[in-house]
Every structure is written in C-alpha cells, then in structure tokens.
Amino acid sequence: MSNKPILVVGGGPAGLAAAHSLAAVGQKTVLVEKEDRLGGAPILSGYAKLVPSGEWAKDAIGSMVTRVEKHKLITVKTGVSVSECKGKAGDFKVKFSEGKGASFSSVVMCTGFTHFDSINKPEWGFGTYEDVVTTTQVEQMISSGQGVRRPSNGDKPKRVAILLCVGSRDRQIGREWCSKICCTVSANLAMEIREELPDCHVYIYYMDIRTFGLLETKYYWKSQEEYKVKYIKARIAEVTSDGDKIIVKGEDTLVKRPITIPFDLVVHAIGMDPNIDNMLLSSIFDVDLETHGFIDRKDAYGELGATSRPGIYVAGSATGPETIDDSIAQGTAAAMSALVSSNSKIAAE
C-alpha cells in the first residue's frame, strides 16, 4: 500500500463507499465533507424510504456513515472543503479551507449534485403558493413523521398532483438531461401517500415514464395496479390558485382536451442539477466538465472513474444524475482505480 493517504472529497453515498472500500483494503484515507455531517443528499435533505430497497435513509445511509466514522484508517473532516489541489498523480499537494495542507497520492471526487430549485420554473407556482411543494419536501414530511399535509392549513390533502420533469428535459431553462430517478421517486411517493391517506387520489402528470429496468414493476406497475395511482400524459402549462385549491392547467394529450383541474397539493418532481459549485470545483481540481456541467468522465471501459486529470477520479452524481445504488457502486469502482494509480507496483504489472 502507498504510504501517502488517498483523498475522498464528499461524504455522500459515493464518497462513503469509496472511503470504506479504500480503508477495507488497508489504505489510509482522508474524507472531507463541506457540510457539518456525513451522509450527503439522503441525510442532509431528509429523504424518507430509499428506492429500491425501501429502507429508511437514516438507517441505510446512517449505517454507511457509522462504518466510515469508526474506521481507524479513515480520517473524517467535516465542515472542511478543498481550496487548492496542485501537484500530480502520486503526489497531490492539497490545501483545505481550514488552512492546513497535506499530500495525497490520488483523489476521488464524490462531490454530488444540487437539487433543482423550482423557483426557476415560476409558471408552476412554487414560491408563489404554499401548497406547491417539491418531492424533497414530501420526503421530509414523511421522514419527519409529520405525514403528508397541505402547508397552507395542515389539512390532509384529498387530491395530489405530482408534476414530473421539473428542471429536467427542458431547453427553456437549459436543462436538457433526464434526471433519471424522479419518475421512480414520484411513483414511490405516490404509493407512500396512498398508504398514509387511502382517501387521497394521486395523479402523476408525465411526458414519458422512465422507471427504468427492474423499477418498472416495483414502482410504475405496482403504483398503478395496487395503489391505483393515475398517470396522465400532459406537460402542465401553468399552476394557479383560486385562493384555496391549486389549479393545474395543461392539455390531456390522450384525449386532445385542455384540462383545468383543482388540487389540494401539487408536488414538483425536481431534477438533479450539476453541483452548484462545479465551476469552482473544476478550477480547483483542474478537471473538465461535460456539456451539461457535470464532471466529465474520461474513460468508460478502461480506468473506471477517470477524469481529465490523471490521478483524480470521480464517482456518483457528480458525473450526472445517478441513483444511490449506482453511486455506491461507482464509489467502490473509483476507489479501485485510485488505489491502482497510487501504487506504482500494481500499476506497473
């Protein structure tokens, strides 16, 4: 093993997996996290039950956090970010925001994503009407134990609309990518709502349903067949209010008719933006961004997780919209690449 430690940047699912994998094979590792605690989006944003395991985020990701915090070979620095990364593969000179510096043989960037801010889609009423919320807020309503309620008056909603592709697949706001997980997350939330409030009808407004792979039956089919969630093919044009109900306007494309339907609660299925700090991260670590603004992956088939700069690797939703499971897998894969890069003996063979 290289006697220099490896640096993992970001303490979300990918970073936790990378740090744990490195430590598990005897590699000294430093994990820096700019927030005051580990766990990344699932913990910081208070997700409820994760897809597809159905486990509570605080249990599933919480156990990953504990595993990392307890490991002797991992030094965890929270509330710390990287301000400089000079040098080259095998000997990176890194400075931290707290002022200290250290030398690392390689770096794994697990810098994650930023939730789309619905305020950038003003025609859909977020920020104007209290009863227009995001999927993250509904996750929080469930994980906090409060239950799904109308923020305006605390009532149980009788009818909920979930709008898909908020901040995704939308050239008007410069976000042309599919955020990959929102369809499944929305189907999951729809079932959670129906479970908690059986009298509440849930409608999902979609352009396409992308519950890819095995998520098809577990979420899309199940939500329709067992939970009677209704899917309507319409991209909503406008969200307004009559003072009480939230009025959703659009076109029901299957019957070619305009719709103006009242709802108690409207939920934006918000997408995944590139980390809001990606321009800064790109300049600090000297790595290229791809066209959408995520960190570019150099090599899909050879050196997993490679970026444009040798010795610096990337994993998880820093590279584009990603599931938690895949982020964990990528974290582990990038750890392997970093390990190989750090150890000239292994690399030479």
Partner: peptide
C-alpha cells in the same frame, strides 16, 4: 368550452365493481 374541469373518480370505481371491469386501473394507454 371543451376544458376538462374535474375528474370524477366514481366512474372508474363503478365500472370496476361490475364483472369484467376489475382490472381497468392497470391501463397505461
């Protein structure tokens, strides 16, 4: 106006209550 102004949830439930209509809610068009 041709605008659909509300959903009548009862209709699906009524059809589903009659023999043959049980699985109507599965339809994805």
């Amino acid at each position: 106006t041709r605008v659909v102004t509300d959903y009548n949830e009862a209709l699906e439930e009524e059809i589903a209550a009659l023999p043959g209509g049980e699985y109507i809610h599965r339809c994805w068009q």
